[in-house]
Design a binder for these strands. Structure first.
Length: 428
RNA sequence: GGAGAGGUGGCAGAGUGGUCUAUUGCGCGGGUUUGCUAAACCCGUGAGCCUUCACGGGCUCCGCAGGUUCAAAUCCUGUCCUCUCCGCCA
């Protein structure tokens, strides 16, 4: 969320920002509701102050008549206060629902545009797109031929969108995790295996909506828990309602979790095979920083993502996400898009990582704060997240880029030590 | 899953309806004394919100959410967490 005071003081800038992001948010309504709330709040506090004073007098009063008459006036003030409080409660709900629709402010350099077509490619990875002198297959065909992916059994066991990773694909998942984690530890990230379920309050704090028509989230019936869509959720929750000392910052975490997504209404187009699935494993970077550290941390995360994919010798490009394609909490976002030769007619880029600087937008909802030795009070942290490796998408890129004429798949050099082989062949 | 105990400020720990401005100690900050250090003594020491140019004032917070009452850390209900015992279990 944006700070309420900030919105009131910067109405025009906030409205312009909504336009630039192609988001419909009724900023004017927010302002009028919030001003109304403030004045009611003041009324309530005044009533409470006098009710408190009366209660104190009753405590000291010795004679019975005096007590009784004061009780009566206390009761009346109470009734008035209750009335205002109920107005205030419903106003609060309304304000919150409008406030939630107002997105974060946007980095001035983010490209302007309605959707992902306006994402601006800014540079390419070290590895060139290879030329194939044979007809390339996609990862679904390769996976079936080499007995690596079993979508049919996945569907039988858990439904469409689920799959089994088998044989070397299972080993590749473990190898990719290990490979990414080693790079992250070198870079000062604390490795964490997170809960795969989280309380709905934590989901909301991180900006995910557990229930409703368009939710991406699986909820556990009869409980207050949901399956996490990313380790960003539990990692953000690490500091929910906490205050940390400024000297400890920045805090870098990398979380390994399973990720569960309903992908409601996303079937069909461009989501064949492993591209859009209900469950996958992901290593996620997450950082809590001081405000002045977050832009540098965002670049650091992007560099790590590049290091990981350069190391895997996969061709990719980096795009600066367009204003209209940014999620609500993101101030700026970079994606890595790997070249997937089997995707579409002639191969296409497909998103494999995403890193966002959420500034204090997420922290405000999480109530994650820091304090300094010199200044009074506390302030909101900045939070950032970035994909280190999303196994399912990385597998697509690896299988399709490393495929050979005979339908075998070479294993990237950096992963060979984990699997003890150089090539995946069809079993006899 | 069953039974019980508990959750109070940075930490320890008192407070069982009003005299509470949440006692006290430790820690922390400042000061006095002092060759230096220590000790002793004195003062101060949470967060959020509203208001004020400022000084200051007000409201809220005793795990969390409700309720009773003129008044709740204290009584009631729900809930979360921690600990102990029993059962089950990789």
């Amino acid at each position: 969320m944006l700070d309420r005071k900030f919105i009131i003081d910067n109405v025009e800038a906030v409205k312009l920002n909504c336009e630039r992001r192609f988001v419909k948010a009724d900023v004017e309504r927010f302002v009028s509701l919030e001003l109304q709330r403030k004045s009611l709040q003041q009324d309530l506090e005044n009533l409470q102050a006098s009710a408190n004073a009366i209660a104190k007098e009753i405590g000291k009063a010795s004679n019975v008549e005096e007590r009784e008459s004061k009780k009566e006036s206390g009761r009346k003030i109470r009734e008035q206060a209750d009335l205002i409080r109920s107005q205030l409660d419903s106003l609060e709900v309304e304000i919150d629902s409008v406030q939630k629709t107002i997105p974060n402010m946007t980095h001035p350099s983010a490209p302007l545009g309605v959707d992902d077509l306006s994402n601006l490619p800014i540079f390419n990875g070290k590895t060139a797109i290879p030329a194939f002198d044979f007809k390339v297959l996609d990862h679904v065909e390769l996976g079936e031929y080499l007995d690596l992916l079993d979508f049919e059994s996945g569907a039988r066991v858990a439904g469409a969108g689920f799959y089994f990773l088998k044989n070397d694909a299972a080993l590749l998942e473990l190898a990719l995790q290990q490979y990414a984690i080693e790079i992250l530890i070198e870079s000062g990230f604390t490795p964490v295996i997170t809960p795969d379920l989280a309380r709905n309050s934590i989901l909301q704090g991180t900006g995910y909506i557990p229930r409703g028509q368009e939710t991406q989230i699986y909820s556990i019936d009869g409980t207050d828990l949901s399956l996490v869509a990313t380790a960003e959720i539990p990692l953000g929750g690490l500091l929910a309602n906490q205050t940390v000392d400024a000297e400890q910052l920045p805090l870098r975490y990398c979380g390994i979790s399973h990720c569960f997504r309903t992908e409601a209404g996303a079937a069909g187009r461009a989501s064949r095979g492993l591209y859009r699935v209900h469950q996958f494993t992901k290593v996620e970077m997450f950082a809590f920083t001081l405000p002045e550290q977050s832009e540098a941390m965002h670049q650091e995360m992007l560099q790590i993502e590049c290091k990981i994919f350069d190391g895997l010798e996969l061709p990719y490009r980096v795009v600066d996400t367009a204003t209209g394609d940014l999620g609500g909490p993101a101030y700026r976002k970079f994606d890595l898009e790997a070249w997937m030769p089997g995707r579409g007619e002639k191969g296409e880029y497909g998103e494999v990582t995403s890193t966002s600087n959420c500034t204090d937008y997420q922290a405000r909802r999480l109530n994650a704060r820091y304090k300094t030795k010199t200044e009074k009070g506390t302030k909101f942290l900045h939070t950032l997240n970035g994909t280190a490796i999303a196994i399912s998408r990385a597998l697509i890129a690896i299988m399709e880029i490393y495929q050979k004429n005979d339908k075998s798949i070479a294993i990237p050099k950096v992963l060979q030590k984990y699997i003890n082989k150089e090539i995946i062949n069809k079993k006899k």
